[in-house]
């Protein structure tokens, strides 16, 4: 039995690592989305974390853990720096500003040859990241998200998401709440970038662009932004499925695209909403009705 298990892990450890890494990023976005921040800054945060940690281990000779921490911290600082001005922008402008941030970081990575290796990237990064590091990181993030959701902080965030005027009127400092979640999201994505860099032997500017940022959003949105397990389910699904579909690369892309479209169209609350639908079958309809009557009356 144990032989079977060790063999299982040996043959699938890469894919397990990838699932965990994507879940970690997914939770970073989950925090941002929970306060209605549709952030495309993920690529930028991951790049900051990855390049900074690699510089720490390869140039400065840091041990692995402080290097990852330094990378995450730099990304968090980046989030704090751009968060203050950017969070004042309305929804779509926020999204586009975070997109511009990711592109600025990517272009800097492309050109700061002495630190980032430019377009070629950095090769032969020592492989320090182990599966348990990733699992631990995901577990910690899930614990934090779970505990916060059940606290006054989580209630305030839920209010910010649904109606920030109400939240303010109840004494919630909406700006600070969103900023702190944005910084937390930056920290987590930065840590994920650092862990990814020490997992893959290689980083290059192409790893951290718009596609990376949108992929990261896909995990929690597909899994469900209201369920705690959403990002995990979404990340595992989107990571495993391409592996399971052993077609040509192109055909796989087509099928994956079609599946994502189908999920978005037929399970708009994300995959986790299946369970909710079953348990509270009537609820969704009733809420809509109530909202409608409220509008009619106001």
């Amino acid at each position: 039995m144990s032989a079977w298990i060790s063999q299982f892990f040996a043959s699938y450890s890469n894919i397990i690592d990838l699932c965990l890494l994507n879940s970690l990023v997914g939770y970073g976005l989950f925090l941002a989305l929970s306060a209605n921040m549709f952030s495309l800054a993920t690529g930028g945060f991951m790049a900051l974390g990855a390049y900074c940690s690699v510089y720490c281990t390869m140039e400065l000779g840091f041990p692995f853990a402080p290097a990852v921490f330094a990378g995450a911290l730099l990304a968090a600082l980046g989030a704090a720096a751009i968060g203050a001005p950017v969070l004042r922008l309305r929804g779509d402008y926020f999204m586009l500003a975070t997109f511009a941030f990711t592109e600025v970081i990517r272009v800097i990575a492309l050109n700061w040859d002495s630190v980032t290796g430019g377009a070629i990237g950095i090769f032969s990064i020592p492989r320090h990241t182990e599966t348990w590091h990733l699992a631990l990181a995901v577990a910690v993030v899930i614990y934090v998200a779970y505990t916060l959701r059940r606290s006054y902080f989580g209630r305030a965030i839920a209010a910010v998401k649904q109606d920030d005027v109400v939240a303010q009127s109840m004494g919630v400092n909406v700006f600070m709440h969103r900023l702190s979640l944005f910084i937390a999201s930056g920290f987590i994505c930065g840590a994920a970038g650092a862990l990814a860099a020490h997992l893959n032997y290689f980083i290059g500017p192409g790893d951290f662009g718009l596609v990376r940022s949108v992929d990261a959003l896909t995990y929690p949105i597909l899994g469900g932004v209201n369920a705690l397990a959403g990002p995990l389910i979404g990340a595992i699904f989107t990571t495993l499925l391409p592996e399971a579909l052993r077609f040509s690369n192109q055909l796989r892309e087509i099928l994956m695209g079609a599946l994502v479209v189908a999920i978005v169209l037929y399970l708009p609350g994300g995959a986790m909403s299946v369970f909710k639908l079953r348990w509270f079958g009537v609820r969704a309809g009733e809420t809509k009705l109530a909202a409608a009557t409220e509008q009619a009356q106001s």
Binding site: Y152, R155, A158, V166, A167, M170, T287
Partner: peptide, 21 residues
């Protein structure tokens, strides 16, 4: 609020507890 602003998908208790923030 004139046009009642409750968090529709949360319980009455959760809505009121927001006031204790």
């Amino acid at each position: 609020f004139q046009n009642i602003r409750l968090l529709a998908d949360q319980s009455v208790l959760a809505n009121v507890t927001l006031g204790t923030h």
